[in-house]
Design a protein around this nucleic acid. Sequence first.
DNA 1: GCCGACTGTCACAGAGCTGTCACAGGCCCT
DNA 2: AGGGCCTGTGACAGCTCTGTGACAGTCGGC
Lengths: 231, 231
Amino acid sequence: MGQNDAVPFLLLIEDDDSIRTALELSLSRQGHRVATAATGEDGLKLLREQRPDLIVLDVMLPGIDGFEVCRRIRRTDQLPIILLTARSDDIDVVVGLESGADDYVVKPVQGRVLDARIRAVLRRGERESTDSATFGALVIDRSAMTVTKNGEDLQLTPTELRLLLELSRRPGQALSRQQLLRLVWEHDYLGDSRLVDACVQRLRAKVEDVPSSPTLIRTVRGVGYRLDVPA
Amino acid sequence: MGQNDAVPFLLLIEDDDSIRTALELSLSRQGHRVATAATGEDGLKLLREQRPDLIVLDVMLPGIDGFEVCRRIRRTDQLPIILLTARSDDIDVVVGLESGADDYVVKPVQGRVLDARIRAVLRRGERESTDSATFGALVIDRSAMTVTKNGEDLQLTPTELRLLLELSRRPGQALSRQQLLRLVWEHDYLGDSRLVDACVQRLRAKVEDVPSSPTLIRTVRGVGYRLDVPA
DNA sequence: GCCGACTGTCACAGAGCTGTCACAGGCCCT
DNA sequence: AGGGCCTGTGACAGCTCTGTGACAGTCGGC
């Protein structure tokens, strides 16, 4: 199963021998592992046997065409598919993408362009499960609801976590105490309480390297606080 | 906040008035909600305020260009970005995709093509429901609907099984009690009942090695629970 | 340097959250 | 109809977290 290998494992389905060979060579050079097939049937068979990470699929194939291969794959599989074609009609692009492809590339295509598109599609797949933001050594995983600093898990309380999440959604932007109260506490009133300050302090104690001279959660005098993106 | 709306909420960043207006109209017709900005700065500001589901970003912008906007967004945000440009040089495509964009579209572009590409990027490959999933010593067989621990069959009750299945479909992702109620019980309301907690506890008793210090089904304070993939 | 305003820090009491348990009703099977 | 297993509920204890007020420290303007 290719899913978690470091090197992407691709299946290239293309009937034209010279194009197939050229692309296989080029993609191998870019650091991919490549399996190839010349027909849709062979491709579907290889897919089941080898479980690639991504499929590059020519549209004009003998027998069942690329659109149909794409649809059949999509009935049972969610793996990324890039359609490859000589036709650049808009309607083809739409049909291709609607049959479930992730991208549609028009031939002739430079190896490094295809490579870049492959990486973009694979990246997208990885991202679906991890919505994260990075601030220096701090990584906020919004789906797991965890925060790590230099790779170590930080134990944040629910309020601290909500505060950090709201700040991280507006990086570099100063948020007033009033705004933070609304966003994090869902209060509308502001007594002159030290509520926000106290929570910021507790958060800094866990997040900052030197809590007394913070570099991430900066104080904006007369306003509130701001989460900075280190340079 | 666009995250869970049915209608995709897009942010279009494009400095050319006529193109921007045309695209906005076209995308609205395709059923999207659209916000627009004419500069990178305004776009970044709108992004933070409005939290769109996807960004369509022109490359040639006054001030900071599209590539740079893209890179800045990627430091803290994982939302999909489609680059839009008049230049079709291969090198630009590569640079664009490497600055973190999900797709790269060359102007002029038909509305329905852009729409198809937007939908392709947004299409969330609902996590592939492979037949079996493994979490440490735990193996979940979705087609047989059985769960084994160190090879031994576990006798889960129907509700426990549904709960485990829902958690395992989103490994590493924290699910709130509310979400779990909807997914497992098909409730919409959340009284302060201990329902979810009680079921989790029963599940842990069967699934965890040491139920009192669980390593698989983790509590996320203030949120809910999460099924972790052991390292 | 002085002053006022703003911010950081601390300790503590009360609130809130979670884990746990016992129990009653419901469902299914026999 | 009876019995056994599931399931949902409420109560409760333990623990963590939260909000508050007081006070010290810091910053900036004059």
